[in-house]
Design a protein around this nucleic acid. Structure first.
Length: 177
DNA sequence: GTCACCTTAGAAG
DNA sequence: CTTCTAAGGTGAC
């Protein structure tokens, strides 16, 4: 069964936080993408069009905003909006689902996730799925570290991975341990 | 078809 | 201990 690729985006909204402004995108099914703050200043124009946003999406955005703000602030978020991951492949969706089970303040490794989805040898593929994760933070790809206490990589910038792990009270490997 | 990627276990030197 | 190799899945070229 093929995932629907051409899922249209309903709208794009900004999420101001103490570490910058995230940008969330919604489809008709829920949150489909979340981006880390970019260097560029947020565009008030786009974020200011909330009046044209469907009530349902506004409700989701409220949950998303709260969740993101809690997480960057070092607190667990329990109230999440529906996540639309329909553009991911079956494999990627399995990986993302497994990642969401990693509790707040806990970590897992690429190897463990690979085992969890029944593909113990697909460790690199898991890494690839993490990199393809459209909704970082809410889908905690930052809680997935490499084995042996190594941090591993991060598409959005290792800086974010460290910051998020640090916010959850986790020791960030830095070459010593 | 080929290559690069958020990896890792195992064999060789 | 360090270095090299092979293996999974996916998207860009």
């Amino acid at each position: 069964m093929k995932a629907e690729r051409a899922e249209s985006i309903v709208c794009e909204l900004a999420i101001p936080t103490v570490v910058g402004t995230f940008v969330a995108r919604y489809s008709a099914k829920g949150l489909c993408e979340l981006n880390f703050p970019s260097r560029a200043k947020p565009e008030p124009g786009k974020a200011g069009r909330k009046a044209e946003v469907p009530a349902e999406v506004r409700r989701w955005h409220e949950q998303t905003s709260r969740a993101v703000q809690l997480l960057v602030g070092g607190k667990p978020a329990s109230d999440l909006p529906p996540l639309d991951v329909s553009r991911g492949t079956e494999f990627q969706q399995q990986v993302w689902e497994a990642m969401r089970k990693i509790g707040f303040g806990r970590t897992s490794t690429y190897g463990e996730l690979a085992k969890a989805i029944g593909r113990p040898k697909a460790v690199r593929a898991v890494g690839g799925a993490c990199g393809a994760n459209p909704i970082p933070v809410l889908i905690p790809c930052h809680r997935v570290v490499a084995g042996g206490g190594k941090l591993g990589g991060f598409s959005g910038g290792l800086d974010w991975k460290r910051r998020l792990l640090g916010a959850e009270g986790l020791l960030v490997p830095e070459g010593g341990e």
